[in-house]
Amino acid sequence: MSNVKQKVRAEEAEHPIAPYLRMDRIPHIWCPTCGIGTVVKCYATALEEAEVDLDKTAIISGIGCTGRVAGYMKLDAFHTTHGRAIPFGTGLKLGRPELNVTVFSGDGDLVGIGGNHFIHAARRNIDLLVILVNNFIYAMTGGQNAPTTPLVARSSTMPFGNYEAPFNIPNLAKCCGATYVARWTCLHIRRVTKAFREALGKKGFRVIEVITPCATLYSRLNKLGTGLDLMKFYHDEADICHGADTRDVEIDFQSRIVCGKFVDEEKPTFSERREEHYRNKLGDDFVGMPSEGGWLHE
């Protein structure tokens, strides 16, 4: 009897992530053993734990595998053009300052085609949480070389191995002025969730890089097995080193991945700096952007 009851309960039960997702779009498009779904689960959990007002939270993605995240999150969600998630998010944040804006996109999108926006948003310290999912490859388009592909790793446009130096993303973010910089792999579910939760409670340009397996392309082209094999690799090769010098955290092909929180500092954001500056210069003549948006109402 109790077994029957439990069975009924199991079939009717909905996954706890359901309130955060557009369940009418699930199952998602990601391949078996892709790690993006895990990062999404961590983000949803962090939203819950940080008690963020979901009605005031917007998520923006660019293009690519991770570019699909915005489409699955039950938030105000924008699936934009390739590389433009950060400037789009800049517009949203400045247009309605009370929004919490998360940019959730991939490595190719954010530091490849969108690299210029990334460095300038960091320089200005725009108040954005940037979740950068790094699978070392352009996966959606078929495994082409990415600005993060480690040296000698194969990609479909580097069939004899990559000879371009990759970006060290934490170092790039730090040098450009990001206020929170961390790196984890998607095996580190608790720590990724904690990093998201912590970063959701902070201000400024916050970058969290999450290394995820791409079994279909990166792993296949490099004969690394399935996503599960890569997860085991992360287990063996990820070193946690909080506060590491970001110059030392570059990633080589199938070698040590330094994880941890590298930067966590307070700096005035673009809007804070702007407001303070204009108050000094203009005094009472200064009128700030209303938190609910520019002039709209009668």
């Binding site: 199952p27 998602h28 790690g35 779904g37 895990t38 689960k41 959990t45 579910i189 608790r190």
Partner: peptide
């Protein structure tokens, strides 16, 4: 909840 957190397909959870 580890299975729930690590599942990339939102296909398992524990209560």
């Amino acid at each position: 909840n580890l299975c729930e957190m690590i599942c990339p397909d939102f296909a398992i959870f524990s209560v």
